[in-house]
């Protein structure tokens, strides 16, 4: 119980820090917009092709954005060595991870939801009827990205070349999330949409597996 209440306080802190400046969210949103526009130059975005390639492109943009967005979540703590304070304050260091994962999932979802109508308009796909299923897909995908991404951000924050290192470690590890969320989103955006439960199940399994691994090994990531 202490774990959850500690985590809840820390989520509040993460969200407050971000919404004071909003720099992370605004930069990421503009980045995704730029990526989507740049991608659209590589094929004809008005044809039926966009239904097939659009979701993959969207998830690629989300993944690239996440690899930049997750970078500061441990670097921010280094400037005033607040990580040591956090570690002393909480009983279980997993609470720090849990809070950062929750906050990062929230930021990613916010960014994705803001980008979704823009994407739908630019690429001429309709999704309105499938909104609950899309939300579920986005939630599970973002959770997977933040679980693995937050753990790797803790690693890359302690290394040289950290800006380059995080995407390098993150993108291959997230192959399953990219493949599955793309396929599920394609099926939700096609002419006769349906929700593929097998994909939802695999994403949930991915999230659960890595959350468990992080719960088991979380404290070692933050060792001095």
């Amino acid at each position: 119980m202490a774990l959850l209440s500690n985590a809840a306080v820390l989520v509040g802190k993460e969200v407050r820090t971000e919404f004071r400046s909003r720099e992370l969210l605004s930069t990421t949103i503009v980045f995704v917009l730029v990526v989507v526009v740049v991608f659209s130059f590589t094929f004809d975005p008005t044809s039926s092709e966009s239904r097939r390639f659009g979701p993959g492109l969207l998830w690629m943009a989300f993944l690239f954005a996440a690899s930049l967005m997750l970078q500061p979540c441990f670097l921010r703590e280094q400037t005033a060595d607040t990580l040591t304070a956090l570690r002393l304050a909480v009983e279980d260091p997993f609470a720090i991870f849990l809070a950062k994962i929750a906050a990062n999932t929230l930021f990613l979802l916010l960014m994705e939801l803001l980008m979704l109508p823009v994407f739908a308009a630019l690429f001429n796909v309709s999704f309105a009827a499938q909104l609950p299923a899309i939300l579920l897909t986005f939630f599970l995908g973002s959770l997977g990205i933040s679980v693995v991404g937050t753990a790797l951000a803790a690693i890359s924050a302690q290394a040289r070349m950290r800006e380059l290192l995080l995407p390098l470690l993150l993108l291959p590890l997230l192959t399953p999330v990219l493949v599955v969320s793309t396929e599920v989103t394609i099926r939700l955006m096609q002419a006769e949409p349906y929700l593929e439960w097998r994909g939802i199940g695999l994403m949930a399994a991915f999230d659960a597996v890595f959350l468990t691994v992080l719960w088991l090994f979380g404290e070692y990531f933050l060792e001095e």
Partner: peptide
């Protein structure tokens, strides 16, 4: 720690 993550990831990649 990264090695543990990497090894666990591979069966999921295969399944996906």
């Amino acid at each position: 720690l990264f090695g543990v993550f990497a090894f666990i990831d591979v069966p999921i990649v295969f399944g996906a």
